[in-house]
Amino acid sequence: MAVIAYREAIAQALREEMERDDRVFLMGEEVALYQGAFKCSQGLYERFGEKRVIDAPISEAGFAGLGVGAAMAGLRPVIEFMTMNFAVLALDQVINNAAKIYSMSAGQFRCPAVFRGPGGAAHQLGAQHSQCLEAQYAHIPGLKVVMPATPRDVKGLLKSAIRDESPVICIEGETLYGLKGDVPDNEYIIPIGEAEVKREGKDVTLVTWSKMVYATLDAAELLAKEGIDAEVIDLRTVRPVDKAAILTSVAKTNRCVVIEEGWPWAGVGASVAALVSTTGFDDLDAPVERVHGIDGPMPYAKSLEHLALPTAETIAAAAKRACYRE
C-alpha cells in the first residue's frame, strides 16, 4: 500500500489507462501545460504529448460535444471540466447526446466517454462555485454517475469509468484533492454501482457519498459515545445506486439517515429516502431522517457557509431522532 493524495490517484488512473489503451485521451481546460487546475494531470502532458493531453479553449459545450463524437467514433475521451459548475454549459451535449445516442440509434452508436470534475462547496467560493449537481446527472437514464470519497476509490472508479461502454460522470470532491489515503500497489478497479460499508454497526444506517462520508464517520464516533452503534454506507456511485447494500443494512438496523451535501428537493438523497421508505418499509422502526445542505444558494461568509452544510453534529442529531433518543 502506498499513501497518496486523491489528486495523485486520479493522475495514476489516467496514466495507467492511457498506457493500457491508446484510444484514451484527456481534454479540458488547463489539463496539459498547466497540468490541471487542481493538478490532477500532473506529468501526463510530458508523458503522452499534445496529441493525447489537450488544452481546450473555454468552450464547455463544444469540447464536451467533441468528446461525445469522438467516443461514438471509437475513441475513449476523458473530458475534464474545471468544475462541475462550468459543466452546466455542456449539459445539452451530455443529456441530449451522450445519454441518448445508444437508445436513439438502437445500439448502433455508443458513447464510452468520461466527463469529470470537482463538485461541492470548497471554502467560501460563493454561490456559483459551491454546487452539488449530481442530481442533474443521476436523474438521466443512459448516464452513470460516480462520486468517490477516497484516493483508493477515485483511482479504481475512474479506471472503471474509462473502460465502461456508457457515458460516466465522475464528480470529485473539490476539497478532497489533497486528502491522502492508502492505494493498493497492484492494479485494481472498483466496479461502478457498488457501495461500501465504511463502518459496521447495528443500530442505525447512515447512507452518504463523496466528502460527506467524513462528516458522517465523525458523527458515528459521536454516536458511539452515546451508545449508538451506527453503520455508515458510502454509495460511491449515485447512478446506478447499490439498492441492495442500502436495503440489507436497513433490514439489520431498522433505522436510516440519508446525508448529502446538496439541496434537499428532487435530489439523490430524496430518491434514497424514497427507496428505503417504500421497498424497505417493513424493515423500518422509524421514519427515514434526512440531513442536507440548506435549500438556498450558498452564501460566501465563512460563518454562513458553515451553517449551510451538514456537520457531524447535525448528522448525529438526526441519527438520534431516528433512534428515538431525543
Binding site: A64, L66, N96
Partner: peptide, 17 residues
C-alpha cells in the same frame, strides 16, 4: 439530431478522431 446546432460538435468529434 433534434437540438438545433447540437450535432455540430459531434461532427467535430469525428473529425478529431
Amino acid at each position: 439530431y433534434g437540438i438545433v446546432g447540437g450535432q455540430v460538435p459531434l461532427g467535430l468529434g469525428y473529425a478529431f478522431a
